[in-house]
Amino acid sequence: MPVKAIKPGYHGEFRDRVENFRGQQLLNICWEKHTMFGWPMCIPVPPEMPFGALLEQVLPGIYGAHPDFARIKWNEVQWSSAKGPFTPDPSKSMVEHGFKHKTQIRFRTPGLDGHNGAG
């Protein structure tokens, strides 16, 4: 049952529909094992933004402060989402990768598992 309510058939309006984000969509990003950052990140992105821009312009601003970040070999990074592993194409957009509004993507950098084992 979707909810027990005084009036049957109660429907709560989706507060975070993509239309409310003024042309952008939300993307959640998680660098696995890097718990020092405390949480997976949530950012608004243009749906047509190429994956390459995420790598070159967005991720350094988010994760650049970590000692592991400069050592990442991007061609060895393992990407995944709830649907399983995927191989990104830097020239293709968020939408072309199948990322919907509020999709979470994760990346794992084997061998770079956090500074001193502390995330």
Partner: peptide, 16 residues
């Protein structure tokens, strides 16, 4: 009870 939480006022989303 999904209908109870789909309209949660999540601060991060509200900021964006």
């Amino acid at each position: 009870e999904p209908e109870k939480y789909v309209h949660a006022w999540l601060p991060v989303h509200q900021i964006y």
